[in-house]
Amino acid sequence: MNSYPALNDHFDEAWVFFGRDLTARMPTFRDADRATVVAWLSSIDTELLFGERWAEPPDAVVDDLSRLWANGKAIGLSASAVRWLQAAFRDGDPSEDPALVRDRERFVALLKSAIPRLPWREAMQPIGVIWSLGHDRELEYFAALADDPALHPKTRAEAAHYREICEDERAAREAQEGGIE
């Protein structure tokens, strides 16, 4: 089922050429409102974007385009925050900044709590980040995720992929520790 029924096939093809122009009209989230979307639709040749022209854009088109834009921005913001925080915890030194440990725990807890509820595509980045911060310490977490029948098969498959990597890491570590004794 199409999440945006008022946006037609013509739109799907053409939107890639128009998205940045709409975003330029709403440079911050505070500028993003329905009136600006309507004004923008009135300023462009909708024949190019939708294959048709209107005296004024239908409400359903304005609603769906507004939702599409907002959903894209929320997904992009999440990806930005994940990348920025991941780098902060990778590069930070807890001996100089003790709050790093607490913030990192909060970061991982937020991701873990969200993953079962996220659309599967949006769950991929958090799963990889949890592994990058925890490696085989997260083996049991990935095993539980991979075995959870309530989750989307693609989310479970991604978790199973990292479970396998963690198993290899743990086996290598145990072999190394065994060799030292």
Partner: peptide, 9 residues
């Protein structure tokens, strides 16, 4: 950043 993440998730 954590607040932005929490809201977007």
């Amino acid at each position: 950043a954590l607040a932005a993440l929490e809201h977007s998730l």
